[in-house]
């Protein structure tokens, strides 16, 4: 291995660690500002509406199609073994434990994360954050913390909606289209899905994903270079970093929650 390549790898690792450290310090700043941000609860509610309610269309549409695809694919695989009766069970477990939280988080990063980054980045570029500082208003408490909280609240709710639409999609394909018995579909699902180990663990995952995506989105916006190019790069980094971190955390959490 050449010295230049080694130096490049070391610099890459150092840069990655520095980024993680910077996100960690920013998270501490947000946590310290949380009590002050509770005064701005209206802003938090507005952000929950903006990141949550405004993401409903894409989450519902994607949830429906993911469920329909799952229904088709799993019906085909299960029919090989003569086990199509387990369609409801397999679809719901896939959605609750993995696909629901992960796909919702990826969609959330693309829809809400980018808009949070772009909004805060433009506030930085147009001196709105500096103006708040000059009016003795802490932008971390007024801008960053409400969006962070909104991500934590909105993500699990969106994941639940995604799961519901996914199961509905699978039901449409499996029962209404392919002729699987309706009672079999639901009874197998309810008998094999455990609320605590399957549903609640999925909710915990989506809470963690919401926190991570919101933290990355807010951090990228807050620290963006105040130029058009800077905002463009920041929004791209939000999607890239969020996707990688969500999948990595998913692996770690799955290993612990299994």
């Amino acid at each position: 291995m050449s010295a230049q390549l080694r130096r490049g790898i070391v610099a890459g690792i150092a840069d990655g660690l520095a980024r993680i450290g910077a996100h960690g310090l920013f998270l501490l700043q947000i946590l310290a500002a949380l009590p002050a941000s509770l005064r701005h609860y209206r802003e938090t509610v507005r952000q929950i509406w903006f990141t949550g309610a405004m993401s409903l269309v894409i989450i519902m549409t994607c949830g429906l199609f993911v469920g329909m695809v799952l229904g088709l694919q799993l019906y085909y695989v299960l029919s090989i073994f003569g086990g199509t009766a387990a369609l409801g069970t397999v679809v719901s477990l896939s959605l609750y434990r993995e696909l629901g939280p992960v796909v919702t988080a990826l969609l959330f990063a693309g829809r809400a994360g980018t808009s949070i980054t772009a909004e805060i980045g433009l506030m930085r570029a147009t001196d709105q954050l500096a103006a708040m500082e000059m009016m003795a208003v802490d932008p971390i408490a007024y801008v960053a913390a409400p969006r962070f909280l909104a991500g934590i609240v909105a993500m699990p709710l969106l994941a639940c909606v995604f799961n519901a639409l996914g199961i509905f999609g699978a039901h449409l394909v499996g029962v209404s289209w392919l002729g699987l018995d309706n009672g079999t579909f639901w009874s197998n699902m309810t008998s094999s899905v455990d609320v605590w180990t399957d549903v609640i663990n999925g909710v915990w995952k989506s809470v963690a994903f919401g926190a991570v995506v919101a933290l990355i989105a807010v951090f990228q916006g807050y620290t963006t270079a105040p130029t058009s190019e800077g905002v463009a790069y920041a929004t791209t980094r939000t999607v890239v970093f969020s996707s990688i971190v969500v999948l990595a955390i998913d692996f770690v959490m799955t290993a612990f929650l299994m």
Partner: peptide, 19 residues
């Protein structure tokens, strides 16, 4: 600093209104 800034008005070059 925040206490001091409560007694200072600052007009930004680009106005910096909250959009």
């Amino acid at each position: 600093l925040f206490e001091l800034r409560e007694r200072i008005g600052y007009l930004f070059q680009n106005s910096a209104l909250l959009t």
